[in-house]
Computed example of a mutant assay.
Amino acid sequence: MHDFLKIFNKLYEYYGPQGWWPAESAFEMMIGAILVQNTSWRNVEKALTNLKPFLEPEKLEKISGEELAELIRPSGFFNIKAKRIKSYMEWFKTYDYDIQQIKKIDRVTIREELLSIKGIGPETAGVILLYAFDFPTFIADAYARRIFYRLGYDMPDSYDDFRMLFEAVLPKELMLYNEYHALLVEHAKEHCRKTPVCVGCPLFGNCIRKPA
């Protein structure tokens, strides 16, 4: 646990608070979490700009799947993502589009419901749980896996086992999980890239898999 917290503290001290997720509303955050699948955030921003007039559940519900697909075209795989958004909306509507209703239910139940929606996998479910519904959840994405591999951790192969490894030892503090994911993303973009940029890396002293 102490090592995980030390790593968090080093990243936080170096990068500062990230204030994630980048969205003006929880609903926009949820839609963005689906749009960002298999694409860059830059492309998502273009799609969200197109969606701006419809970024309320009742408005988005009324447009057709074809119209939605055209609006989100910049995000790629737009026909598939349109269907996923529509499926997500059907689930969200069972709670009357009311996030406060969802927050009253336990995280395990909501996570299982999210995973039952076609196209919502563990990572997408995780970021929605964390950033829209305020459930402390570790996001065991490819960035986290890359960073902790280079730091020498023997991580489980499965997403959920990797996630639970962290959740078993980290304090259940929303801000900690919120910032940890955002900081890992920032670090993976700035220093721990596929080809790492080790000069100035705040975790260089912890890294055991430095490039030769």
Rank of each mutant, 00 (worst) to 15 (best):
L60N: 01
K52C: 07
A47N: 00
T49Y: 09
E56K: 13
E45R: 10
E58M: 15
A69P: 08
E61Q: 12
V44L: 04
T49L: 14
K46N: 08
E67S: 14
L60Y: 00
E70S: 08
L51D: 00
R73C: 06
L51I: 04
S64Q: 09
A47Y: 00
E56N: 14
E67M: 07
A47S: 03
V44W: 04
L55I: 08
N50T: 03
L55N: 05
L60V: 03
L60K: 01
A47L: 00
E58P: 14
P74M: 04
P53R: 10
A69S: 11
N50I: 02
G65P: 15
E66Y: 11
L48P: 08
L71D: 03
L71S: 02
P53E: 10
A69N: 05
K52W: 08
I72Q: 00
K46G: 07
N50V: 02
S64K: 12
E61W: 08
L48G: 08
L55H: 02
L48W: 05
V44C: 02
I72E: 01
S64P: 10
I72L: 09
L51A: 01
R73G: 03
V44A: 05
K46I: 05
N43I: 05
E61C: 02
N50E: 04
E56I: 12
K62A: 13
E45Q: 14
K62C: 11
E58I: 13
A47P: 02
R73I: 06
E56W: 11
E56T: 13
E58W: 10
P74C: 04
L51Y: 01
K59F: 15
A47V: 00
L55C: 10
K52H: 07
V44T: 14
E67T: 15
K62W: 08
A47Q: 00
G65M: 14
I63N: 09
I72W: 06
P57G: 05
E70G: 07
R42H: 15
K52L: 06
L68R: 00
E45M: 09
L51W: 00
L51E: 02
R42S: 10
N43Q: 12
E70N: 06
E70R: 12
I72H: 03
A69E: 06
E58Y: 13
E58Q: 10
G65N: 13
T49S: 10
R42Y: 15
I72Y: 04
E66N: 11
L68H: 05
